[in-house]
Design a protein around this nucleic acid. Structure first.
Lengths: 275, 275
DNA sequence: CGCTTATTTGAGAGAAGTCAAGTACGGTGG
DNA sequence: CCACCGTACTTGACTTCTCTCAAATAAGCG
């Protein structure tokens, strides 16, 4: 299968990495600007970058933004595209990924309601963003938003804070990718997903839904789908999780999962060779 | 060997990870604030966050900052410490790392003249920073710097830009850690170091010095020292680099190194199984 | 010069990858 | 409602890349 993505990149992909060829943006709808009521009633208002704006100022934002819908598997922006927009997720889930020329893929993050992307790059996007569920997105012109920073220092601060938080979590993910075993990676992933789910639900939930498939999880953790699957099976057999289908997991022992996410018993490795 | 780092963490480490027990900060000197002339004549002025300040405003910065010296292997701040300061490197090289409870370490970045750190975390530092060469550092109270953002939007913008650039490069590093082979990792690393060296020297240099040792490189690339060493030997035998001692490398074929850093010939992997 | 520490090299082991086959699941249409 | 199909997931057998352990060599320093 040969895909032409955007106008710049032509890649050969395995069926695993992009199973569905209908990834053009043809069917996405965009309105010139959001109905003001859409902002007022926005479910993501309190977790997104908008949460520092009062209802009046929200109207200024809404006039700048377009409301975009994407189906699952549709591309929102592509590595190499001109980066004109900032995207804010109102609902749904998005994956952010980078690729090597031969098709190997690294997912650098999963984004959910309230998350934004499109600001960290320079003139061109340095990653691809794709919907993994149907998504609603607010799209802002980058330039305009950056201009607004002058007028609304709160907004600037909020976006900066969120960027710093993201930088922080990428550091944790680098530790995972560089130094954790497959089992530790999966435990960490499940706990991260739990935290995100709880944050959005505003309560702690040990039953989590996984909108992404095994291939996405593998590419997020630097593993293969087979290894991910085997580790799910292991944790299931150990009774640490209970699988209900492939995309619903309940975490049965948070404490043990947390310990395993950091290397099991602390006294386990070469660190124990005290001279 | 048992080390007590800072006041909060007690870790067991192999000799590889922290060979020198004399890592307390006792010998570091700090002046209450910088002599204004120090800022004016600062070698890092044009590449650091200060480069948006004119000479008068620089004095405001200099009154806030302390000038700190550290010897190689001394710790600047430790994961878990209260994050009171922002650090700006005037000269020398610093490694930023995170650790698992059993001592496995991931170096998330090497920082050089003009780079800053200490802002991306919340109340506590989420990583450890150590000098790998003797370093001179400007230390600013975080609070004060953030207050200055109001008065100097340029400074805010500059710091934000640098943070975004860093976020961008962590994404590239995640692709490296999750999806590249040992050979590709080392090629990528050498090219990154070349870019940084060239940036500071303001000209392209194919001879690069490596201030970090093999253990640092290994922990940066998610490998072991043995694998790093073997890959150096390989590239040397292939004539792509020339080793002059362990810490001086000249890159003999940038183009081939660049290709190898991304997976060799593009037509190499499973991506070629066109259905 | 002799000691310590860092790096390189070699041989063998193991965790995760690859390839291949089987199973479960969800949607569609008779 | 059930049979069929395609996709996603799981499981098994085998391979391989990197790690581990061990020893040799090189480099740095008092």
């Amino acid at each position: 299968m040969v895909l032409t993505i955007g106008k710049t990149l032509s890649l050969r992909l395995t069926s695993i990495h992009s199973p569905d060829p209908q990834i053009e943006n043809a069917h996405s709808k965009a309105y010139n600007h959001l109905d003001q009521k859409i902002c007022q009633g926005c479910a993501s208002k309190h977790v997104s970058l908008c949460n520092v704006m009062d209802n009046d100022d929200l109207n200024i934002l809404s006039r700048l933004s377009s409301n975009i819908h994407k189906k699952a598997k549709q591309i929102i922006c592509t590595e190499g595209d001109n980066a004109k927009y900032l995207y804010n997720i109102r609902s749904g889930a998005v994956r952010i990924s980078k690729m090597l020329p031969d098709g190997r893929r690294q997912i650098t993050g999963f984004l959910f309601t309230g998350d934004f992307f499109g600001l960290s790059c320079g003139a061109q996007h340095s990653y691809t963003a794709e919907a993994i569920t149907p998504v609603e997105i607010c799209r802002f012109p980058r330039k305009k938003i950056i201009e607004l920073f002058q007028e609304f220092p709160n907004l600037n601060e909020r976006v900066f804070d969120m960027t710093r938080t993201e930088l922080n979590s990428t550091h944790a993910q680098m530790l995972l990718l560089g130094r954790k075993t497959a089992k530790e990676k999966l435990c960490s992933f499940l706990l991260t997903m739990r935290k995100k789910t709880s944050l959005l639900a505003k309560k702690s939930k040990d039953e989590i839904g996984l909108p992404m498939n095994r291939s996405d999880i593998a590419d997020y953790l630097g593993l293969t789908i087979e290894t991910v699957s085997r580790q799910f099976t292991n944790l299931n057999k150990l009774g640490l999780i209970k699988l209900d289908g492939a995309d619903k997991v309940s975490l049965k022992n948070i404490e043990r999962l947390s310990i395993m996410a950091e290397g099991g018993r602390i006294l386990s490795r070469k660190a124990y060779k005290t001279p």
